[in-house]
Amino acid sequence: MSERRPRVGIVVFPGSNDDRDAAWALAAIGAEPVLVWHAERELPDVQAVVLPGGFSYGDYLRAGAIARFAPAMRAVAAFAAEGGLVLGICNGFQILCEAGLLPGALRPNTSLRFVCRDVAVRVERTDTPFTRRCRDGQRLVVPVKHGEGCFYADGALLAELESAGQIVLRYADGQNPNGSAGDVAGVVNADGNVFALMPHPEHAVDPLLGSADGALILASLVDAAAERVGASLTASGAPV
């Protein structure tokens, strides 16, 4: 069965710090994580890619602004252009926005404080490869930890994202930790294959750590990735 596990690449930038957490969580859920160094010009044979959390290149200039030029990001952009599944978490969200693979930008939190706590988000769409294990409107408790997570899109762009159904996750009422426009916690691209969120699903995969809700998002991705190797995911221990 192990050879049927989907392979998920995790790009490691200088300053990434949730790469191993993501690898651990994906392995627990039934994927085979493959760490990919940022200087690699080609991706290995993977069915999905994760851009992990952290502070790539020290977040110099703007969070994600320099990481987007890493050689591996050129490969990720090509992978995404061919329909490959890409999940950005926190710093990964910032990188994908800077790279133009997702709309909008992430600004410093309106509080100017680094926030590190559990937040509740609401699932707005379940017909994406990243949320298919969730129920419509389901409330997920997942931790955030960031200083620059304030999603910005001007009025016209926000309205466009709303009408196109690209807002996949929103902070629940009263839970917006960073001042994000429209309470946006996670967006998907127009083609539906690139998604990112500020909360950390990889830190919420075991009830012992307070919540296993994040596993729904990672397991959705692993399921979708598994279909791309032509195998159905039946790994025992995969959360339902």
């Binding site: 410093p108 309106t110 509080s111 100017l112």
Partner: peptide, 10 residues
């Protein structure tokens, strides 16, 4: 213009 600047506000 119109972009919130929390650093400036502080």
């Amino acid at each position: 213009e119109g972009i919130l600047d929390p650093q400036g506000q502080a």
